[in-house]
Amino acid sequence: MTVLTDTATPGAQAPVFYVADEHEHPEGASTYLGFWIYVMSDCLIFACLFATFGVLGGNYAAGPAPKDVFELPIVAVNTAMLLLSSITYGFAMLAMDRDKTGATLGWLAVTALFGAAFVGIELHEFAGLIHEGATPERSAFLSSFFTLVGTHGLHVTSGLVWMVVLMVQVATKGLVQANKRRLLCLSMFWHFLDVVWIGVFTFVYLLGMLR
């Protein structure tokens, strides 16, 4: 018995299962994962809106059907705008890696222009629909359509506001670590919106035309 207690006293160290003291984290080290989890939760908002559209998308209430109101050429141009803005944002990130402030700002400006073109074309499309009487309150199909596509458009608009703010930040403070971190977060957000748009043009527009 005494032998057993002896082994567990001072000389021998107890095994360590965890570090008692939190080690130092570099500033902003957890930002990327945190922002990624935000993006994933945003993805769930869109999942709910897609589910709503999936359930209500066929209820026209004797009003216009997708075939009567959608114009695929406009949607194709819109898709091209968003796709181009994705690749130019990628170029901005590559310029940021090489610490070229001017090139980063230039590519961000091009991205913002494509994004603004996307929002502009979408607003033009919405205005056309409302002019034809295809308003959100016309049928369940149009309510869920405007909610889903409008929420995506609002996201793109807030992404644009964020992009302009960051361009001002980079222009005044330069490509400091904090600005690089913010640009990488916006990159996640921007590419995520492009992924959501794939769902929108496939399930809302293309499948709507097939209905």
Partner: peptide, 20 residues
């Protein structure tokens, strides 16, 4: 525990062009 010092990976020109 220190694997998170570096920024997240963000492709090369080649990978962006392939994706596009």
């Amino acid at each position: 525990d220190h694997g998170h010092d570096d920024s997240p990976p963000h492709g090369t020109l080649q990978s962006y062009l392939i994706g596009f």
